[in-house]
Computed example of a mutant assay.
Amino acid sequence: MVQARVTGSAANCPACGVASHRVHSRYVRRLAEAAIGGRPTVPKLRVQRFRCSTTECPRATFTEQVEGLTFR
């Protein structure tokens, strides 16, 4: 098992693009299993869910994404 966490303090809302610093919650995502050094691994990533700070935005909350690693 490999565990990691994102350390960013803000993320951009995917709907309106505005940066938010308001953390709603945190949780662990289990990523696709991979082989590292020929051994099977289970990557787990702790991410944050943010509240969008734009009142007109249709998304109330969103999860930060790690470019090249996670996606919606």
Rank of each mutant, 00 (worst) to 15 (best):
M1A: 13
V2P: 02
V2M: 10
V2T: 07
Q3F: 15
Q3N: 12
A4V: 08
A4D: 11
A4W: 02
A4Y: 04
R5F: 06
T7F: 06
S9N: 12
S9G: 12
A10L: 14
A11N: 04
N12F: 09
N12C: 10
N12L: 08
N12V: 05
C13F: 04
C13M: 04
P14N: 01
A15W: 00
C16E: 00
C16P: 00
G17F: 04
V18K: 04
A19E: 12
A19P: 15
H21I: 12
H21V: 06
R22A: 15
R22Y: 15
R22S: 13
V23Y: 00
V23E: 01
V23T: 03
V23F: 02
V23P: 00
V23H: 00
V23K: 00
H24L: 01
S25Q: 07
S25G: 03
S25V: 01
R26D: 04
R26T: 14
R26F: 03
Y27L: 05
Y27S: 06
V28E: 02
R29M: 10
R29G: 03
L31F: 13
L31T: 09
L31V: 11
A32Q: 14
A32Y: 14
A32S: 15
E33W: 14
A34H: 09
A34E: 13
A34M: 15
A35T: 14
A35W: 10
I36A: 09
G37F: 06
G37P: 07
G38S: 08
G38M: 11
R39A: 05
R39N: 03
R39T: 05
P40D: 12
P40H: 10
P40V: 10
T41K: 13
T41H: 13
T41L: 09
V42T: 11
P43F: 06
P43A: 11
K44F: 09
K44E: 13
K44M: 12
L45Q: 07
V47D: 04
V47R: 11
Q48G: 07
Q48C: 12
Q48F: 08
R49W: 02
R49N: 02
F50L: 06
F50S: 02
R51N: 11
C52E: 02
C52N: 03
S53L: 13
S53F: 07
S53T: 15
T54D: 09
T54H: 06
T54M: 10
T54E: 11
T54N: 09
T55C: 07
T55W: 11
T55P: 15
E56T: 14
E56D: 13
E56I: 11
C57P: 02
C57Y: 11
C57D: 05
C57R: 06
C57E: 08
P58T: 03
P58H: 08
P58Y: 01
A60Q: 10
A60M: 09
T61I: 08
T61Y: 10
F62E: 00
E64V: 07
E64N: 11
V66W: 05
V66G: 01
V66R: 03
E67N: 03
E67G: 04
G68K: 07
L69H: 03
L69A: 09
T70K: 04
F71C: 09
R72T: 05
R72S: 13
R72F: 07
